[in-house]
Design a protein around this nucleic acid. Structure first.
Lengths: 366, 366
DNA sequence: CCACCGGGGTGTTACGTATAACTAGGCCGG
DNA sequence: CCGGCCTAGTTATACGTAACACCCCGGTGG
């Protein structure tokens, strides 16, 4: 051997470590005895005294009427004692199915999507499916190939809003597609939506009931269907209230940026708004900070509402009146819809309900 | 709900990888007529007028000196126009390697671990590796089989602290193992650790410099190596300060629970602490709420310090003095350590530095 | 003039599984 | 007594790729 150990990876990174001395070569397969490889279905067959096909039949759980209970039990017994685990690569190669779904979400550091992931994973797990995450490219940014990391070893895709170029790449893949919180008019995908409009209506009803007429809408600067919906629902709901006015300012999902935008919105000309309706709890936290800077007390001088009901909503002071979104259910239903589609069944429909949570950030208008 | 992707890495190596085809690539070619199957390496071979073996050689990037540049280019050209993507299942089956790593973390809803995930994924991506997440069973709870969801199709494992039963299952698997933030004495794994002790020392130095002597330690109730370290480092650092005392109360990672624990800690007998040192920003947020309930102002009457520097730290009022942990770097280095181990190289060593961030929640002792 | 070599390929095989196609009895109706 | 059917399996094959073992050919040293 004149050559060092084969590289699995190119060392493109900075602190990749030092090359190991050639003599050290510690290729120790500690767990298994040298030479003993992972048991295959053939090993199990040999141990049980049957053919490999029978093992596949029994473990594939499609053996009703094909294999006697006595034989099946002896196969299972052999598999257990050998510690057999089916080789997924072989299974996928043979069946053409990977039992893996791609979840396209903006970022896991976003609590809402982390919860969506949790819900999707829980359902997937129960059905023997895996979930791999593809960080959705920013709506404006350049789109990487969604399949580069996932390796195209996918049975289907669950996607939240994302760059349209990447989205069309997914569409063209021909994979079953479930869209989260996006325009249900699109017939090429199943849809899982929240009843956002109802949440907005409840907020408006709550605030106008407290006497608020002059509203500042702190909106996300993301140009997606969801936020269009919110804006639209807000204006529609306020349209039925005589004398109500709304002004909209935009901010990225960041506390400091939200603070700045709110300060600007509150100090602009015209009558000062008595309530700030925010497109998310993060924005609401920023709005609260802005109020404090301007010498306004929340909620006595200014009411603030959030959206999402993240952990943040109860961590800040005052705790936020907000709309709780069933994030886990979004993930669960998304995965169920995908599984249904793969089975040729109709995916579930209908919007998921949201709930107004009253806390301490809203009060009667001054 | 939607936010721009956080900057994942501060790598010096720029984009750090081979230029990959962008998703905007030839959508017309990748879209397949129904019924037509995905092109295989054999299809590419036919199109390029070479054998399948040659295609494998060229695309496997191990062809230096084996294939002429002219042939290689025609193969690549054919692959491009056909929209060829290697079948990962077949590749894994043949090579015995899956290019997939298991990341064992408690929960993605925890921002710290979400950032660890982001770092690990970024590095993995550049090396053509995938990452699947296994939600670590609670330290106390029953351990599911870590491989049930991952299907044993793994090349290695990166794990944070977890139930020992599940951990030993991982050890027995014989897979390369990288442990995050755990006892480096364990020789069976590579380790990626933070310089927690230094962070604690900096906090203590900061507080004692402000005149604080009477400290309340709001500690996590998790019985893991990390938190042992924190407790130990705190007592060690305060031990060098004459007249300093510390009392410890425990709470789960939850704002409300932390508030209750803090209230109890502050109202217990003896001299009232003038500063609360918390094992995390979430706990610190709870401590601030406790202070407000007790009529204490932060930081005038009571200083509070956090740990982690999550988004939460700047969302609450006052903004938290805390210790910033390089979570993304933990993930990055964890993945690099795994890749190094797989290549037979020595994984990088040494603790990652942490940084004290001074904000508004600390002030001179009253 | 032949043996040898290295560059540039090709043929072939094996990875572990799922499943279609087949077989060997046993039982029953005609 | 034979064809058909059911039960309980077995045999054989294909999935797409990686890599080993060849093979061919032109140039070279002896």
């Amino acid at each position: 051997m004149t050559q060092g150990p084969r590289r699995l990876t190119d060392d493109r990174d900075g602190d990749g470590g030092t090359p190991r001395a050639t003599g050290a070569a510690p290729a120790d397969d500690t767990a298994r005895a040298p030479g003993a490889h992972r048991p295959t279905s053939r090993d199990v067959a040999r141990a049980a005294g049957v053919s490999q096909a029978t093992v596949s039949l029994v473990l594939g759980a499609k053996w009703r009427g094909r294999v006697s209970e006595r034989t099946a039990e002896s196969v299972r017994e052999a598999a257990r004692t050998l510690g057999y685990r089916p080789n997924l690569a072989a299974r996928s190669l043979r069946s053409g199915r990977t039992r893996t779904a791609l979840l396209v979400i903006p970022a896991l550091t976003n609590e809402f999507f982390a919860r969506v992931w949790a819900g999707a994973t829980a359902v997937a797990d129960r059905h023997g499916f895996g979930v791999v995450i593809y960080p959705a490219p920013d709506v404006t940014g350049p789109a990487k190939d969604p399949f580069a990391s996932a390796g195209a070893a996918l049975d289907g895709v669950i996607a939240s809003s994302m760059a349209t170029s990447a989205l069309s790449a997914l569409r063209d893949s021909g994979l079953p597609l479930v869209m989260l919180d996006s325009d249900p008019a699109d017939p090429a995908a199943a849809h899982v939506n929240l009843d956002i409009a109802d949440g907005v209506r409840q907020i408006v009803h709550h605030l106008t009931g407290l006497g608020h007429r002059n509203i500042l809408h702190l909106a996300s600067d993301v140009d997606s269907w969801t936020f269009h919906q919110r804006r639209h629902a807000l204006r529609a709901a306020l349209g039925t209230v005589p004398g109500a006015t709304v002004r909209t300012v935009h901010a990225p999902f960041d506390v400091t940026a939200a603070r700045h935008a709110t300060e600007k919105g509150l100090t602009a000309g015209g009558p000062r708004p008595t309530a700030v309706v925010c497109d998310g709890d993060v924005l609401a936290a920023g709005a609260c900070k802005a109020a404090r800077r301007l010498g306004l007390r929340v909620p006595e001088d200014l009411s603030v509402t959030g959206f999402d009901d993240l952990a943040l909503a109860t961590a800040v002071e005052p705790e936020l009146t907000t709309v709780a979104l069933p994030a886990e259910q979004v993930g669960e239903r998304g995965m169920r819809a995908l599984l249904a589609t793969l089975d040729g069944r109709e995916p579930p429909t209908g919007d998921l309900p949201v709930e107004l949570v009253l806390r301490a950030s809203t009060a009667p208008a001054p």
